Computed example of a mutant assay.
Amino acid sequence: MRIAFVGKGGSGKTTLSALFSRHLARSGAPVLAIDGDINQHLAEALGHDGDPLDAPPLGAHLRDIKEYLRGTNPRIPSADAMIKTTPPGRGSRLLTLLGDDELHARHVRRVGDVPLMVTGEFDESDLGVACYHSKLGGVELYLGHLVDGPGEYVVVDMTAGADAFASGLFTRFDMTFLVAEPTRKGVSVYRQYRDHAREFGIRVAVIGNKVTGEDDLLFLKEEVGDDLLTHLVHSSWVRAAEQGREQGELEYQNLHALNVLRETVDALPKDWATTHGHAVEFHLRNARAWADDRTGGDLAAQIDPDFVPGPPALA
């Protein structure tokens, strides 16, 4: 299952992404964490310390990723003709989670119990030239060509706020958890996400974070209603871990919340047809809006009408 953590900057979505990834990994489940935020802090949240993580960023190797994933697909003559929304077709090279392939070998690094991929930072050479979402193309292509199986998890720490809607990446997830603090600003992003997600049938559940008492919980219930799935209380354990002095065990209430998240994800049906349908729709949108002119081709022709998404495609 593919899980996105979104929310206002400072809401704790990176912390929750790390906690949930570690929770899954320590249970023995296959999990891959991806840092898709402009502020690349997921490695630190997972416990990395010292020199910068030596994981080659996806955003810096986008052309190589395209070249690898297009495989022998006759509808994609070159990497230059491929864009981040190009869906797989017959001949495309599909991926299994943490499979024995060059993409995982090059980009995955382990932080404690958790394998991690990163999109890369927004650096000085990008200023005034590119938007951060161009770096997320590697994540979009990766998820578009991934055939994940039962009991496997991809956890993505997404960009803050409603910026996640700047590309079709938001449709590539089986579940989106929106992290909200019990404040008016904390729930403002929820309203934006709720309205956009409903248009495409995207599953969104709210996780209250940094809850200190009944008043906070009541506020969240009044603001988000039935979309409030669970909540985490203010955590001394998390604060200690952020200060580099992790000790003891996560609070019982917060461990329970992580279990609720997993139970919710595990209860969801995998809908390959809808996911692939969203990929095709956003590819056509991008083709019409800019990509046909940019590449000089008709990118609608990249869509393979006879491609069957999901496990059958691996055969």
Rank of each mutant, 00 (worst) to 15 (best):
G12Q: 07
L146Y: 08
F282T: 09
R262C: 00
A180Y: 04
P77S: 00
L299R: 13
G277R: 06
P74D: 11
E181Y: 01
L103E: 01
F122E: 02
R203K: 11
S11F: 03
F5N: 06
M175V: 07
Y153M: 05
L261N: 01
Y153E: 00
H104T: 06
A197F: 12
R262H: 05
H283P: 03
D113S: 14
L268S: 04
A105V: 02
K13G: 08
P115G: 12
G208H: 02
V114W: 08
L143A: 02
V147I: 14
T275D: 11
R203L: 11
D271A: 03
P77V: 01
H48A: 13
D148L: 11
L94K: 12
R93D: 01
C131Q: 09
P150E: 09
R63P: 00
A180R: 06
R26V: 06
W290P: 00
G161D: 13
V308F: 06
D100N: 13
A45T: 03
G186P: 12
R90I: 05
S21G: 10
A240P: 04
R22H: 08
L32H: 05
G151R: 03
G277A: 07
G28T: 05
N39S: 15
V129K: 15
T295G: 03
D49W: 14
Q253A: 14
C131K: 11
F5Q: 08
A33R: 12
K8L: 01
E44P: 04
D54E: 14
D266F: 10
A29T: 02
V111Q: 04
I83M: 13
L169E: 07
T212A: 09
I38N: 00
T86I: 01
W237H: 15
P88Q: 03
S78G: 04
N259F: 08
R2S: 08
G89M: 05
D266S: 12
M175D: 01
L229C: 07
D35R: 10
G7V: 09
R2K: 13
G168S: 10
A33Q: 13
I34P: 11
L19Q: 12
E242D: 14
L220S: 04
R184Q: 13
V265T: 14
I202H: 12
K66V: 04
F170Y: 12
A313I: 03
P312D: 03
E102S: 14
D216N: 01
Y132G: 07
W290Q: 04
V108A: 10
A25E: 02
L16Q: 15
P56N: 03
D298E: 10
K8T: 01
A55R: 05
I3P: 05
S235F: 06
R203G: 06
T86Q: 02
A164N: 15
G9H: 07
E281L: 15
E140W: 09
L229V: 03
T119H: 00
S235G: 07
L94H: 11
H231D: 03
T274H: 13
M117K: 07
